[in-house]
């Protein structure tokens, strides 16, 4: 793991509550390699999203990063001045959240939202931004003439693809996807995630993929980490975590997913 893009070292995040301190993330360490799809699994309230927020330093009080390091190419994001951080967010680390419907501005045409991001971060002109936006729309398979539409004119799946397209427009090195398809139906989910796998291959960015659906995660990721009560209880290659989970909780997560009889048969007799 010498070629790690992101190194999380002994990260602890606390929530300061009236009743005292809640340790949401306890001494968590993991690496994400260049071009690697890394998944964080676990139920809600297990600290997955808190880690995502800590990496982008979006954790707001009462969340408090109590200790540890988050190194991007060796630079500690946690100790970076706010101004320098501006050149990291979106430029080097993109984010796609669960409710894409809410992360696009309903009053702006999609084209203008591309311009907003591209102009702010690269100083691109209207023409340049338009060209880049067209390129990105082609990439995610949405007709270019729809750039002048408003978000409400797109379906939920398309809006999520637009958010991914805006994210990709700045060619980030790492994209954090926090439950990117949980609100969508299974066919649309597969359409989007197959596309992410494709784009990852062609563009070479790294992905931190967060979900509670282990089956889905196993289809996409190279390596998986499992969170339980703020601790990372298991990290390994997909094959190992899916076929021979070491931790009890990982096994429980696997068996908790309703699956089709055809899939179940294979679970009983792993090939």
């Amino acid at each position: 793991m010498s070629d790690a893009l992101l190194q999380v070292r002994n990260l602890s995040v606390d929530y300061l509550l009236d009743k005292g301190v809640f340790n949401a993330v306890k001494d968590v360490s993991f690496d994400i390699g260049r071009g690697e799809l890394f998944g964080l699994a676990g139920e809600s309230g297990r600290g997955k999203s808190t880690i995502a927020y800590a990496i982008t330093r979006l954790a707001k009080p009462p969340a408090w990063v109590a200790g540890g390091e988050i190194l991007l190419d060796g630079q500690d994001l946690l100790r970076m001045p706010e101004r320098a951080l501006q050149s990291v967010r979106w430029r080097r680390i993109g984010m796609v959240f669960q409710s894409a419907m809410n992360s696009l501005n309903p009053l702006m045409r999609v084209e203008a939202q591309f311009y907003d991001v591209l102009h702010r971060h690269t100083g691109a002109s209207r023409e340049k931004s338009r060209a880049r936006a067209e390129e990105m729309f082609r990439l995610v398979g949405i007709p270019v003439d729809r750039l002048s539409n408003y978000p409400y004119q797109f379906s939920g799946g398309m809006r999520q693809r637009i958010v991914i397209a805006i994210c990709l427009a700045l060619s980030p090195e790492l994209i954090i996807m926090d439950e990117p398809t949980t609100a969508l139906d299974v066919v649309v989910q597969r359409e989007i995630l197959e596309q992410v796998v494709d784009l990852q291959k062609s563009h070479g960015f790294s992905v931190l993929f967060i979900t509670h659906d282990l089956h889905l995660m196993a289809q996409i990721c190279h390596r998986i980490g499992v969170m339980l009560k703020g601790e990372l209880v298991e990290v390994g290659e997909v094959r190992q975590v899916s076929r021979a989970p070491v931790h009890d909780y990982t096994r429980r997560l696997w068996s908790a997913i309703p699956s089709l009889p055809s899939i179940e048969h294979r679970e009983e007799s792993p090939a």
Binding site: Q200, K201, Q219
Partner: peptide
């Protein structure tokens, strides 16, 4: 059949380069 094929199956990882085909198929 499409609905059934889209149920996440941990033993069938997505193959890079297949997305356009699945999109067109769907």
């Amino acid at each position: 059949k499409l609905l059934l094929s889209a149920v996440p199956d941990p033993y069938q990882p997505f193959v890079p380069g297949e997305s356009a085909r699945f999109l067109a198929h769907a």
